[in-house]
Simulated scan of single mutants.
Amino acid sequence: MSQNTPQFRSWLGIPYATAKRFRKPTVVPFDSDLPYDKKGPASIQVGDTSWLDLESGTSEDCLNLNVWAPSDAKGPLLWSCIYMVGDLNTVQTHKSHPIYLV
């Protein structure tokens, strides 16, 4: 677990696969020893990228995800919501559609 707040826990920049140019992605096993305290790289974008949250820069190898969970979660299962950005030549990143934590 990387960050705690009174309401949420987060694990950031979890790599789920690695991709080499023009190759099929390869699944990456979960490494519980990594801190997961920093967002992973965003996908490479065209044009002005000043609006991007480039905490870890950009990369073609950007197959990572961020997870937030309630800090008081009980039980083994929680509901999940997954949002995949990109596709159809759109310019997007994990910051394009803010997530409102309620």
Rank of each mutant, 00 (worst) to 15 (best):
Q7L: 03
L54V: 04
P25L: 02
F8M: 11
D48V: 14
I44L: 08
D31S: 05
M84N: 14
Q45I: 03
Q3T: 14
T49S: 09
K24N: 13
D72L: 05
P6L: 11
T90D: 04
Q3S: 10
G75H: 11
Y36S: 04
V27W: 07
L101K: 08
S2F: 00
G75D: 11
K24D: 12
L63P: 00
D37Y: 00
W68R: 07
V28A: 11
V67C: 00
P76L: 01
D87Y: 13
S10N: 10
K95Q: 13
S96H: 06
E60F: 02
K24W: 14
L34A: 11
N66P: 06
G47E: 03
H94F: 05
S96D: 03
P70Q: 04
H97R: 13
V46S: 14
L52A: 01
S50L: 02
P70M: 01
T90F: 05
K38E: 15
L78C: 08
Y36D: 04
A73I: 06
P98H: 12
Y100A: 08
Y36A: 01
W79L: 04
L78Q: 14
S10Q: 12
N89M: 08
I99V: 14
T5N: 14
N4M: 12
A42C: 07
W79T: 07
F8W: 14
F22L: 14
L101H: 08
P70I: 03
R23F: 13
S50W: 05
D61F: 00
E55N: 09
S59Y: 02
S71N: 07
S32R: 07
Q3C: 07
H97V: 13
G40T: 09
E55W: 02
M84L: 15
G57Q: 12
R9W: 03
Y100H: 14
Q45W: 02
E55P: 04
V27E: 05
R9Q: 10
Y36P: 01
G57L: 08
V102T: 13
V85Y: 14
V28T: 15
K38D: 08
P29N: 07
I44E: 09
I82T: 13
F30S: 05
A19H: 12
T49Q: 10
T93E: 07
Y100D: 13
S43L: 08
L63I: 03
W51L: 03
P15C: 08
R21P: 14
D33M: 06
G57Y: 08
S71W: 04
Q7F: 02
P29C: 04
T58Q: 13
L54P: 01
D72Y: 05
A19R: 15
K38W: 09
K39E: 03
V27P: 08
T26V: 15
G86K: 07
F30P: 02
T5I: 14
D87C: 15
L101I: 10
R21E: 11
I44K: 09
A42M: 09
N64I: 00
W11E: 01
G57I: 13
D37S: 01
H97N: 11
A69S: 10
V102W: 06
M1E: 12
Q3D: 13
P6R: 15
G75S: 07
V28F: 05
V28R: 12
K95A: 13
L101G: 05
W68V: 07
S10T: 14
L34V: 10
D31V: 08
T26F: 04
Y83P: 01
